[in-house]
Amino acid sequence: MAMAMEAVAELIDVRKYYQMGTQTVRALNGVSLSFQQGDYYAIMGPSGSGKSTLLNLLGCLDRPSGGRYLLGGIDVATLSDNALSDTRSRRLGFVFQSFNLIAQLTVIENIELPLVYQGGSTSQARHRAYELAAMVGLETRTDHRPAQLSGGQQQRVAIARAMINDPLVILADEPTGNLDSATQGEIMDLLDSLNQAGTTIILVTHEDDIAHRARHVLNLADGRIVNIETAAERRRRFGLEVEA
């Protein structure tokens, strides 16, 4: 992309330590990195390398033990708990491995939930939720409960929910981990199309063919960045066709 890019999220020597008795677990041990508007990152690495920890920090669900994290230019470490909540509801979208829809709410109520916590107009929220339900192809299932949907459909609802606040970044921790391969493809196609429309996406995955879809792949090990590959470099390494 030729246009000048603006950093939506920037990590500067970010550390996350957990104290387990006398032992200190260094889940993230000095990570510096910046994400541009419209980026598409896949985070990879062995189990316990700190992928989820990184994503949780990016998602403002946690504060770093050291270093700085700037989201949209604001240092997250200085924010109050309420401000973190507001940041999540206004600027971030989450997609989880296990869908994480709320069982007692209908599809449409699940989709509009982030806007409810912003306290805006309910009719506008409802209207936008219907638009997104249509976008993910579930306009006929808006009054259904999550339990009445397939896994793939539930994940579509979750993606629509992540999109409702026009987030700076969508964070997805193994979004296709619970899905069969055909459905995986559908969900990834949906995420690809969102990215093409300009949404920044950061996802964690264990699977190479999912990582191939991203523009950058970040390899983590022991809480440190091993390297960042571009899609072209990676495809070459895997002996795949490099798209024109």
Binding site: S85, S89, N100
Partner: peptide, 16 residues
């Protein structure tokens, strides 16, 4: 508990 986690992730304040 998980529902609480989901709601918090989606932007619910403690007061919510």
């Amino acid at each position: 508990t998980r529902e609480v986690g989901i709601r918090r992730a989606l932007g619910a304040r403690k007061s919510h």
